[in-house]
Amino acid sequence: MRVIIAEIKKDVKILLAYPIEIVFWIISPLLWVVPLIFQGKALIGGLHSTAFSNLAGTGEYIPYVLIGGIFSTYMFTAVWSMGNALRNEMFYGTLEHILSSPVRPFYILLGKALYNSILSTFFVAVQISICVIFFGLTITLTRIIPIVFFLLLLMIGLYGVGFIAAALTLLIKESQGILHLFEYILFLFTPIRYPVEVHPITRAVSVFIPLTYALVALRGILLGIEFDFVKNSLVLLGLDAAIVPLGIWIFMRIEKRTKTKGTLAHY
């Protein structure tokens, strides 16, 4: 536990050492959300679409996209931050020193994952505040508990995805390309901007991605769309149970491979 806290503290302190980066974190939620709203308005010409309602279970396109945009932040910061975390350590020259300490890399990665969750929560809080203040999104206290419940289930699964992203960075060194690929795949196969029912392939692939179930549940809670609470919870739990060990296993395999090939500190 101490290692995890030390890792979070270290990453937060390093982030705070870059004031411009903090300004970016404050401004970027706004820049991320507003285009989605404008896009929705331009396409639908109002707040309601009957055609959209047939696929999504709600005709409210803008709130639908807002929720997708806001909560997918967890996914993207997990992939980007975890993927870049080890690469940053390579650049600092500290990767070999943390990996030669008597701590399993899992705990270091877990610390980095929790740091990402803190960052994402801040990011999401700013986005929700913008939506509540400027775009009329309403959140009541009774909704917060199930939201937190599904967010926790989502985050656990994302740690698994983050471990895979970190492992791939360790393997291929240059993380930008693979992380962009991850991002585009997620945009394509999860209901961030549109219902995955739009195409049979997106629907088929989306069932393996935790974000799909989390978004269905979160939209259900926030927009009053009917959804199966138990089913979504259980599937998310099942995916978490599969993805986290898979992520750890992949990371351990790739760490061993880099130690065998002697490419651990290469970048």
Partner: peptide, 14 residues
């Protein structure tokens, strides 16, 4: 204790 890499083995922002 492993001493390699000299000054690059530290976090410069800390």
């Amino acid at each position: 204790g492993v001493l390699t890499g000299g000054e690059r083995s530290l976090y410069w922002k800390l």
